[in-house]
Nucleic acid binder design. Structure first.
Lengths: 329, 329
DNA sequence: TTGTAGGCGTTATCAG
DNA sequence: CTGATAACGCCTACAA
């Protein structure tokens, strides 16, 4: 019943069929030396006819390039589909350059990195959601492998960084809030307890900078997201307009606000950090000013940056901060 | 600055340090022949001291086992964090058995499978979200590699299947709806247009079976999820209680219902298919009867089934359907 | 219980 | 422009 698993054709088989030496087949494939048009043709025909694919193990063993990029994903991840947006975009973009993505869960920590690096499964790494100082950086660094982090730790010798410009985001939010004549900005999602996260820290820095001297009151909310609307009510002065924003836990907050009708209340201004998928959820949300966190762009940039590090030999590390953008309704 | 990338230690190095032959090191690692306690000790010390990890390329080349499982993920994926629950659990469980997960995006289709299989990168596959008949099955079958699908296609020669028992789910929902004296069940998320999906088809089958002869009116909703509450209103007879359920698009529906206050309305019964993460979103949701789709269990079972196929040589394919469970509030 | 040696399928360095 | 040939690091039959 099951297909007899016959041996996969090797470059030797291709060579025989094309009437050339085995090494010539290799050169046609790698392009690392000039080949006459005639023999290239014959070799390519043989390849097609046999359905030949170079054996990955052999290639990796010999060349020390596995064609695999390790992706360290955070886990568990409470937030909605956000993570998948990154992973999908990273996988797609990698394939454009001939690389595959191997998952390394954060749970495995430094040991996971170590394993995947020492065994030579991965020839490069993308790290997501690093803490401001992260134990996983050490094994990466001493592996000497090129790597890119999505998320900007405090100090970073060696790897490239691609991330949203969270500091700019903070300034953008404050500007909008002031333009909308709000006297108060409620930052929900308990940012005060999340300063250890580099994105939160940078965002808060931007907010505080831009708000300084403007009289805008910044409140770091704490407590269950579900009760956030009540807290927003209580803290407002008479006739004062309140703005709300969070860089995390956006969906639950919108949910809670929708249930109380606050999304339609002109006394509140809600700004969401999210892709444009939210409009499909409820018509109410079209009224919410939104910022595109540009997750797909960031993912693609991360891959391309990694490919650059892999190709150009002595290529130096770089930091690329992507501007958040207002999504026009 | 950057660490000089010194050559990784080989089993040869370990052998020298331990004062044994290279093959002995290999035997200690694979356990494929008895080793005296004394030499095993020495070898293991040497391994630890050098931080040795067997080279993946060499091992794969020689043994034809790469230690990598290919995971074909659907993409793009509109639904919320669901997919990540599967992927995370699969990655974790695989690691318990010494396997890594390589992503293959559905976008690549049959060619992706072909590539990853012929090059020998993956020694087994997990396929998610297959259609009732799927083009990607063919290359998998003729690769002869063991595979497991999460999701049950119509016909399936060769691979194992692990999935939620969607037919039973349909019957469970109908039973509950009848017990709650609803005269009408509104299935939202446009299931009528999704019969091509094997889960939807099986669910609807179960619903129809169980509802037959009971007088329960089944309506397949269509149109934007956001307007679903209005449609639910309009179709109800006088004094009639309406139940609502969807196996897809649950979060948006709950969102829309919350905004209209319907979650607290005793004339409506909303049943959600979801993990228990929803309660953190809003207190309102604790009142919604919920079914646990058991994604983590399904993921783990899929991995264990695959490992079984890999280990036992002539192991036959199996179908495992996991029972949905009511989550008690 | 342990050692020796051949080969897995490539890449890349020699020659020609 | 092309052919032989030597590794790459490990597994495992064959010897001892």
């Amino acid at each position: 019943m099951s297909a007899t698993r016959r041996r996969a054709p090797t470059s030797q088989d291709v060579a025989r069929l094309a009437g050339v030496s085995q090494s010539t087949v290799s050169y046609v494939l790698t392009g690392s030396r000039p080949i006459s048009e005639a023999t290239r043709q014959r070799v390519e025909e043989a390849i097609a006819k046999l359905g030949y694919h170079p054996n990955s193990g052999a290639r990796t063993l010999r060349s020390r390039r596995s064609g695999v990029i390790g992706l360290m994903v955070p886990e568990p991840y409470a937030d909605d589909g956000v993570l998948m947006q990154f992973i999908g975009a990273i996988a797609r973009e990698s394939q454009r350059f001939g690389y595959d993505i191997l998952l390394v869960t954060a749970q495995e920590g430094a040991r996971g990195i170590h394993r995947v690096v020492r065994t030579g499964v991965c020839e490069a790494l993308i790290l997501m959601e690093l803490g401001r100082r992260d134990e996983r950086v050490a094994p990466v660094l001493d592996s000497g492998l090129p790597f890119v982090t999505i998320g900007k730790p405090d100090e970073f010798p060696g790897g490239s960084v691609v991330d949203l410009d969270f500091e700019l985001l903070g300034r953008m939010v404050v500007d909008r809030v002031l333009a909308e004549s709000c006297g108060r900005l409620l930052l929900f999602g308990a940012p005060g307890t999340k300063r250890h996260r580099n994105d939160v820290a940078r965002f808060l820095g931007g907010v505080e900078d831009q708000a300084a001297g403007t009289g805008l009151r910044i409140e770091l909310d704490a407590g269950p997201v579900a009760d956030m609307p009540e807290r927003a009510w209580d803290g407002a002065g008479p006739g004062e307009r309140t703005a709300m924003f969070g860089i995390t836990g956006v969906a639950p907050a919108l949910f809670a606000l929708a249930a109380t009708g606050a999304l339609a209340d002109p006394d509140r201004l809600m700004i969401a950090l999210t892709g444009d998928d939210l409009t499909s959820v409820s018509p109410l949300l079209t009224a919410v000013p939104r910022i595109d966190p540009r997750r797909v762009e960031i993912s693609e940039l991360a891959v391309r940056e990694l490919v650059r590090l892999l190709r150009e030999d002595g290529a130096g590390a770089r930091t690329t901060l992507v501007e958040p953008r207002w999504v026009e309704g």
